[in-house]
Design a protein around this nucleic acid. Structure first.
Ligand code: FES
Ligand code: FES
Lengths: 155, 155
DNA sequence: ATTAAATAGGACTAAAATCATCCTGAATGT
DNA sequence: ACATTCAGGATGATTTTAGTCCTATTTAAT
């Protein structure tokens, strides 16, 4: 349907949540699920998948939890999404040359290639660290709307 | 899955096929289906849909067929795809403001907006007329590869 | 008027994807 | 030992995808 799945969306939320924590913080599934409004049991599966994909590490047992395998500035939005959704191909024929035998003479093919390139460029150029910063700005903005004076002391 | 469906792909093929015909030509389902490698009975449904969407007109009965409702230079790739797939939203929260209540503070939202804008830009800036031209160039190119000498007399 | 040629439209279906839930097992800190 | 967490498998409801097939209707030609 040319739309990301809930899996992808939830994965981004989870990674973003962890990215916003102080380094070394262990996050619990229930905590992430509640904060990011993701069904708890569903998120469990997604976290497992993210661990397997190598983006997240986990510790089992009491005082266990999840934490990022890399620093937030080293994780792009694309990586977060593709870790769960798999590589993105706007049309099936983009998977690889020859996947569709029409790609040799189909004039639409190069349009999809360009569209995909531009889409990826956007997702590649946004790191989790940047998103956390953006979120802080948004928070500051909505706070300003409520209390127009006195900028917040901590940023 | 962030991928266009067969419906969308087949619709583009069908419209492209009609765009490549001399004006006034009536195209038959079976003819388009064979040329564009689309299952005949499936294409039938897609053509119906394209007629309802107003992109294509039809004439029933003997000597009937399909033809474009507008000139190829007035039909963009986006219009062809969206006529069948409906409006494209890379994430469900882009459908409209407030569709997802997180859009106010979610820092990913504006990234999806930009990604979508760039994707649409690519699809908007390609008309069926241009694609037909591109196809002719591709044909000429592969023809050149087979017979490196003697450029084709008709273009 | 008959008939052949076409599209229109509805019913139906198999397979896969989507979006989850629930339970058991394994690991780990106290 | 025990409470706490994640790991992983089984299950399932619903929707989407990607078709097929049959009948009805319209139209042109004879
Ligand atoms: S073969 Fe890739 S779009 Fe046509
Ligand atoms: S609300 Fe739109 S991406 Fe998060």
């Amino acid at each position: 349907m040319l739309q990301i799945t809930r899996d992808g969306e939830y994965a981004v939320r989870a990674i973003l949540h962890m990215s916003a924590q102080p380094v070394g913080t262990l996050c619990l599934i229930s905590e992430i699920a509640e904060a990011q409004e993701v069904p708890r049991s569903y998120l469990s599966k997604i976290m497992q998948h993210l661990v397997k994909a190598g983006l997240v590490k986990s510790r089992r047992g009491a005082r266990g939890g999840f934490f990022l395998a890399r620093r937030p500035q080293e994780i792009t939005l694309r990586q977060a999404i593709e870790a769960i959704e798999g590589p993105i191909f706007l049309n099936i024929c983009l998977i690889k040359k020859g996947e569709c035998h029409r790609d040799e003479f189909c004039p639409v093919h190069q349009v999809w290639q360009e569209a995909q390139r531009k889409l990826m460029e956007v997702l590649d150029n946004k790191t989790m660290a940047q998103l956390v910063q953006d979120a802080e700005k948004l928070k500051g903005f909505s706070a300003k709307k409520r209390t127009p004076k006195k900028p917040p002391s901590t940023l």
